[in-house]
Amino acid sequence: MRVSVIDDACHGHQMCAIAAPEVFGSDEMGNAIVLIDGDIPAELQAKTRRAESNCPERAIVITD
């Protein structure tokens, strides 16, 4: 599983970081950044999906 954030769509709700703090952080503007390079470890995949389903801007893209 890989994950990315569409920068133009992200408006910094930070609900991704609430759901999966190991996977999402924030830049100095409060917008989301992905903290993990490459594959998301198995133990964080459920949380990552949860982050996706909590983003009000639908700015998170998961590719399996």
């Binding site: 970081a17 924030s26 830049d27 100095e28 503007m29 409060g30």
Partner: peptide, 10 residues
């Protein structure tokens, strides 16, 4: 943009 840094989680 000018005010966002004041409100980042950090």
């Amino acid at each position: 943009r000018l005010i966002l840094p004041v409100f980042s989680p950090q």
